[in-house]
Amino acid sequence: MTIVDSGALTADGEDRAARPLKPGEPAWKRLTHHRLAVVGATVLLVLALGALLAPVLAPYPVDPLLDRAQLAQRFQPPSSQHWFGTDDLGRDVFTRILWGGRVSLLIGISVAAAATAIGTAVGTTAGWFGGWVDEALMRCTDLLLVIPGLAVLMIAQHGLGESTGVIVVVLSLSSWPTIARVVRAEILSLRQREFVEAARATGASAWRVVTRHLLPNVVGTITVYATLVVGGAILAESALAFLDFGLPAPTPSWGKMLAGFKGSSGTSTAYLIYFPGLAILLTVLAVNLVGNGLRDIADPRHPGSVRRGDGASSRPRR
């Protein structure tokens, strides 16, 4: 799935378009010097605000009464009244884009949250304990990585029906292994470091060492991958909608709006696929830019380093 593709994105060289960092500078401040990341974050903020404030901002009701007068408004091209035109039921597309952001972002964020939680727990456990625990957990992640998530999602939807819940659960299940691998690799290398040895020597419990000493050092990397899962999940939702496996109506989602008019390219109603497509493109692009910026910050090594040994770029060494 797309998530894996964006995983490779993080194996990227830095893209710092700003001055080199001073050690000890707070992360947010460093992020603000990453121009593209700032652009991405701003776009995301605008989109998120648009989605949150949709009830206030939307010029038309999102769920109007579909009577004859309403239906007669269908297929109106973009105009000053309907900025993005109207759809097949005469509904305002701009209104639906605003509301659709809620669903698309909700899916992206919940999948990322769930995948990060599971991935971090599994990766930390495997990296910390090592030995057979590690081997067993890593084989489980292998197992989930070899079965295509998109196919499983479609099979699940066939058996369980359309619902946002099914999409979120299955996408989370197929996204966490990548994060688990990355976290495990980081924990493995951190475990050998002096400060961890020192903490253990003072008699701190394993729980304390992991939560107080190890995880804070991995948070940067985890955040990077979590942002990429957000983008991957939004793209996966649209791919599913294209294959007729979507969210139930009347919930507007960008993927569903885009897929619903997939046949209109090259005709007078092509605007119906331009706007939701742009919304998806813009959101995922913004998320990826922020992730890219975060990656630069999370990497304390010299500029231009490739993070060999992180899970998505190459397989963990053993």
């Binding site: 939807q157 066939h158 058996g159 029906g161 359309e162 619902s163 139930p248 109506a249 009347p250």
Partner: peptide
């Protein structure tokens, strides 16, 4: 009224 759609054959 709520809408729930499903694969014609299996579900």
């Amino acid at each position: 009224v709520s809408i729930v759609n499903a694969n014609p054959a299996t579900l």
